[in-house]
Write a protein that binds this DNA or RNA. Structure first.
Lengths: 294, 294
DNA sequence: TATTTCCCATAGACATGGTCTATAGCTCCT
DNA sequence: AGGAGCTATAGACCATGTCTATGGGAAATA
């Protein structure tokens, strides 16, 4: 068979060589001296090479033993480093957390959790990948991210989605349209005003468009913008009425730079979903982060 | 206690990661698949970290597993190299042979053995250290040479000396003293001629000086030289009568450029001794070389 | 020289734990 | 639906690594 079959013997050899004493090696390894003696003898037998000179002071490497040691020492050091690294990963002293989602969810939903997590675990490197929901799902399946944060609903049998907080989309306007503040509008009335929508095929836009259609209306935006920030900004400047997530404009609503348009139809709420791969183990950092969010 | 206690598990991990399959790893390690499965599970449990994604095609490293692998791979490669190196040492495909002795013994006694040994084992590097007998003994005790080749007798309890071939010292002269060729000389007569001796405190010189003294004569050389080659050369040139080892001038005796002086007293023979440290394991190359010489 | 005190080696009992066979569950492919 | 890959699990078994007890040798101590 192969010669030095049992790698445990190299560990014993390493400590015996390093300490120059079987007794010391035994202490380091939490073994007894005879065990170490036996292990060394066994390694020597398997290799067919005498590795140590024994005398009453201890042991010393033979020439061949010294050659072996030069390799084994490196090998053992690598294993030690590996174990240290694993410990640091486990304790979240190092590692990385890779999250996919939309910019707005990062900013308005995840930010406080991320702050807390990074403060508690400064060794963790954070990677945020933004994209559309299908892109995020693709990232997840490619293993490029540990978890995705998107709007529900998600239907994909490979994914496990846990519902998180509820969000309420709504129409908001700036002071320019102050006359609408205390009114309850119908879709009909709303469509008299310039509408600002998110430009991309976002889940929220598709949902609201469908809702209007189900009532027999066509929702055609005057302006399309590419970011949630611009949706807010344009509404504030009076360029139109923006369809936004209420929770994302809570500051503007409070300070009065925006107000919510009241409609005679209840707009459907949406939920944030946290997606992970079903049947795939979570990275340590990701599972800890999800605990934190929940 | 410490986490990844059993280094055997890393070997299993290495092959599982390398082949991407527990079944393949089992084949490589001459184990069964359940054993590998169990070993991996155990390593994961001990580390507290999931190392592989399992699916019906096989296994794939998790992020953490990949980090572990980057260390373990190096470590395993080093062990493989170590085992290869040990095998090559054992087969005398590499290694070194360090011998101490006198120049003349190297040249006239060991040379043919060394030639044969090196031809058979071209990977072995030879180190020859010359010095006086006490120096050689010191080298041995310091571990700077594997074996020493010197004249007997040696008395040192730390050494194990095996007697090798017998050598006969004698006086030789060149054609200049041809008149002595068929004579049997007494010490008295011999001392009429210029004597050439080895200059250093060599064992042979001390022995012959003592012998003369035991017969009541004082052996005082006309010329002292520092090498055996010069002893021979000076005698050939007729500068005097040299005290040399007969076996070392066999060529000159045959071709007639030197002849042996016959004495009425039998000069004591000497033996070559091969010294090694008692109670210390021999290097592989040294023990094989000694077998060859014996 | 006698004594103590370190070492390491050996013997034999014991139990841990690694390995096996058998089997089940899963996914993908035909 | 069936087959052919995987991996996971259960439980029996025994090899081997570990222990205690002991012996012997060398070196320091007295």
């Amino acid at each position: 068979m192969s010669m030095g079959n049992n790698y445990e013997l190299y560990k014993v050899f390493y400590w015996a060589a390093k300490t120059g004493s079987l007794t010391q090696a035994a202490k380091a390894l939490f073994l007894t001296q005879p065990s170490v003696s036996h292990a060394i003898k066994q390694l020597e037998d398997r290799l067919g090479i005498t590795l140590f000179y024994r005398n009453s002071k201890g042991v010393a490497l033979t020439h061949e033993g010294a050659i072996l040691y030069s390799y084994i020492e490196q090998s053992q050091i690598l294993i030690s480093r590996a174990e240290e690294k694993m410990a640091s990963l486990k304790n979240l002293e190092s590692g990385e957390l890779r999250i996919g989602g939309s910019d707005s969810l990062f900013k308005h939903y995840l930010l406080p959790y991320l702050e807390g997590f990074l403060q508690k675990h400064p060794g963790i490197r954070l990677h945020l990948n933004h994209g559309t929901t299908p892109e995020i799902i693709a990232f997840l399946k490619e293993g490029r991210i540990d978890l995705g944060v998107v709007r529900m609903p998600i239907v994909d049998s490979q994914l496990k989605v846990t519902e998180s907080i509820q969000l309420q989309d709504c129409f908001v306007a700036g002071p320019r349209f102050a006359e609408l503040k205390n009114m309850v509008l119908s879709f009909d009335m709303l469509l008299q005003y310039p509408i600002i929508l998110f430009s991309r095929n976002s889940r929220a836009r598709m949902a609201i468009t469908e809702l209007f259609e189900s009532y027999g209306y066509k929702l055609k935006p005057e302006i399309e913008v590419g970011s949630v920030d611009l949706l807010i900004e344009f509404a504030r400047k009076g360029l139109g009425i923006s369809y936004v997530t209420r929770e994302f404009v809570s500051k503007e609503l409070e300070e009065g730079s925006l107000f919510e348009i009241q409609l005679d139809v209840q707009l459907p709420p949406s939920h944030v979903g946290i997606m992970i791969m079903r049947n795939m183990p979570l990275s340590i950092s990701a599972s800890r982060f999800i605990e934190l969010v929940r």
